[in-house]
Design a protein around this nucleic acid. Structure first.
Lengths: 220, 220
DNA sequence: CATTGTGAACTTATTCACAGCC
DNA sequence: GGCTGTGAATAAGTTCACAATG
């Protein structure tokens, strides 16, 4: 309620789905701010994103009290609160492994930078690429991964190599002390306890759509 | 049980999470086949993917009976069954809108083709790109979207344009009769009932990781 | 008086546990 | 003996509904 919000009532054991929605709220709040709105409400957010108002409020309730009864939420306040919750109230230094088609696209993706993610190093097995720069980011040899990760103080890794190499690359990143990994290879990699992992498989996303179509459903 | 499985006991109202896991099972089954396995089991699949064996069986039970008690699942049989369920037992003709960094990466992504998705046309607003081919796919003007979609019999659309244009492009795709859309723009677009939509936001995926890290959790 | 925050009711999803089968 | 399929039990997540509030 006050400018600096009360501490989270429940630090851990937040359902993953809540975290997903949280970053959706964040994105939507920014759009609403860009549209000139100073405040919003749980029902407005919910309507826009396809949730109920109660769900929006319950999700936020996991982390504290951010609203003003009778008024709603101040967009800038809630943006800051969610950024803090998601850990994006600071910069994160990120390494990319695999400078193929997808890797190059990720190097050029401005959305990362806007959310505070800094791609500060890239790695590839192809020696012809090593030493060159793409989008201002230097491509290093895979062999120097541990060293560069350490000197560059990199905390997150993005894996964009073929499926066959994904586990080995993941192991290297973990050994180099990375805290979390986003894996774009179409394979399930395993990481030790304590390392966070998210997988993105582009073909799988399309399959969600074809399932709905093949079974004549509507989805959101 | 028989080579041609019994019809699904429950056609509709399958939880979205089940469909997500289904395509994970499919991917894992293919890896196991590539490793030379003829059969697998719910516990093996579950262990590999981080689910319980009961969950694997329950998920499949939504659609019929595919296993052999005492034996497990024949990989090739189950792959075919899941492909049929997901609707990927045939080719799907797909259009890409937005040939920027990400769009070009998607055009070059071989995983789509492997799963039966054919990117047969691309569209962009930049007139300097129009008429050229990337990865063998011709780039058309946005204005000819409806016409090309129709003559090329395209059923799915992939949106890879900036956030500001995503809704307009989505509306055009819907108007052109597309059945489903995968949206890579960092904005929530709305589609009418009956059109299926999936959103992928690369920065959001990283936020799932930073949340876990900022709160010192381990995730899978 | 519109809107939040929240306990209680409800709904959905997951796990357990075991009968039946190979 | 090992494994599936499934009803029953448990857990998790969502919605309801309303007192509290600026």
């Amino acid at each position: 309620m006050s400018p600096t919000n009360p501490p989270p009532p429940d630090p851990t054991s937040v359902p993953p789905a809540v975290v997903h929605r949280l970053s959706l709220y964040l994105r939507e709040l920014r759009h609403q701010m860009a549209d000139g709105n100073e405040t919003t409400s749980s029902s407005q957010l919910g309507r826009r994103l396809g949730f109920t108002d109660a769900q929006v409020r319950k999700d936020l309730a996991h982390f504290g009290q951010f609203g003003h009864p009778g008024v709603g939420y101040r967009c800038d306040e809630l943006v800051e609160a969610i950024r803090k919750i998601l850990g994006t109230d600071r910069e994160w230094r990120v390494a990319l492994v695999g400078v193929g088609n997808l890797g190059r696209a990720l190097l050029g993706y401005r959305g990362f930078h806007q959310q505070g993610f800094r791609l500060v190093a890239a790695f590839d097995a192809d020696s012809s690429k090593i030493g060159s720069k793409i989008e201002g980011v230097e491509i290093h040899a895979l062999e120097s991964l541990a060293e560069v990760m350490s000197t560059q103080q990199i905390e997150l890794g993005v894996v964009a190599v073929p499926a066959a190499e994904a586990q080995a690359v993941t192991d290297q990143l973990v050994a180099a002390g990375v805290g979390g990994i986003v894996n774009f290879a179409p394979v399930t990699v395993t990481v030790p306890e304590g390392v966070c992992k998210v997988g993105v498989d582009l073909a799988r996303e399309l399959e969600q759509v074809t399932f709905a179509l093949a079974n004549r459903l509507r989805e959101t």
